[in-house]
Design a protein around this nucleic acid. Structure first.
Lengths: 216, 216
DNA sequence: GCGTAACCCTACGCACGAGTAGGTATGCTC
DNA sequence: GAGCATACCTACTCGTGCGTAGGGTTACGC
């Protein structure tokens, strides 16, 4: 009821843009650890060093806040990857640069990655949005493979291509998750390992070498 | 206060074992769609055609109920895989049978898979349990690769092996997720596609062919 | 130097959902 | 057929946490 005695305001007045980023930082941190539902707006506000109504004033409801986190981390990630993998390089070089950028991002933004990968997948309102982003990634990888294939005069069904791309993206995400849990691991080295699995396998496929189930 | 008039009891009295399975079925279904926190015990009880106190009496708290779901679906899956992949077969044959069993399971228990893969990962109390199960799978795959390698007189660092296994498991899970979202897709065919990516890649690695980052 | 807008707070209302109290009916055993 | 365990219910309590009402203080334009 009675506000703080007007002596020393222990808080600083900061411009909106700055506060918003602080709030998003806190939100990403809390969401990544607790998950969407188990996170409380109070804790997020607290962690951001601000009171709850400010969060509502700037970022809206809890759901909108989560979406804002998703957007920030997602576009950051996409930009990191897109900026690294120029489209006019050979496929293996593109893949390598893309992977390196990706693992670099995850290594540097483990919380952001956790929100995207571990939390958003299960919660219905966000899963669709996430799937779209992931779909774009899969498309890029599939396009890359398709491009490389055509250069060799070969062609593969669209579904086959999509599924292979899906598997590669999944393997990469899985390793990213491993990386997020192993702070001592080197992102660069992890990218190299991924390249070993992905490229050596993809290379075989590009040469038209395929595996078939045994008879019976 | 006043209970139902004792005329026609619309419900059937069933033995505990049966009701428990019905409850678990309902719980898996609801948890897989809504996630742990967004699911209510009322909805689960309702879906099982029973009242809430019965759920508490048989399966305990919400958390214990979720763990029970995890256990049932997890062991079902593990058994399906273990039963298919006999340990004294050649590596490619084992991998193929394991994959086929796995995708078969996911195709037949999409809800169960969703609980395991999408929901349990983010929620702290369960993530550890899940990681253990997943770890066992990774170990099996790593052991398989190691076995195949030794047969060729080759050897690879333990971390390298683990990471490759991790990538393969991740790729497989990712395809399983794709399968769960594509009811028209054929589990057998998906397994074949996975085999193409996994085995052709792994085969190269087993031959000692590795990829190295370009200079610069 | 005064209005007005931007920043920021404390302290609630209110709904939703986990878990329980307390009681009824049915079948099984002896 | 009396006793007892099991199966099952309706109707609560109570904590937790989202979102807001209502109000105070600093800066900035004019």
């Amino acid at each position: 009821m009675l506000a703080r005695v007007s002596s020393t305001p222990t808080f600083k007045r900061l411009p909106r843009a700055v506060r918003e980023q602080q709030m998003l930082d806190a939100a990403v941190k809390v969401f990544s650890r607790r998950g969407f539902h188990a996170s409380s707006m109070d804790e997020i506000a607290d962690d951001a060093g601000i009171s709850k109504p400010m969060v509502y004033a700037y970022l809206g409801t809890k759901e909108e806040l989560f979406v804002a986190c998703l957007h920030r981390e997602g576009t950051r990630m996409m930009e990191a990857i897109a900026g690294a993998a120029a489209p006019d390089l050979p496929a293996d070089e593109r893949l390598w640069r893309g992977l390196r950028a990706f693992f670099g991002f995850v290594g540097a933004h483990r919380d952001g990655w956790a929100v995207l990968y571990r939390q958003a997948r299960g919660e219905q309102p966000f899963a669709a949005e996430l799937a779209t982003m992931r779909g774009r990634l899969v498309e890029v990888v599939a396009g890359m493979l398709d491009h490389a294939l055509r250069a060799k005069g070969r062609e593969v069904g669209a579904t086959d291509l999509e599924v292979v791309a899906y598997a590669l993206v999944g393997a990469t995400e899985s390793l990213a998750d491993w990386l997020a849990d192993h702070p001592e691991a080197d992102p660069e080295k992890t990218a190299t390992r991924m390249m070993n699995v992905a490229w050596l396998g993809a290379d075989q496929l590009l040469r038209g070498i395929t595996w078939h189930p045994p008879a019976g």
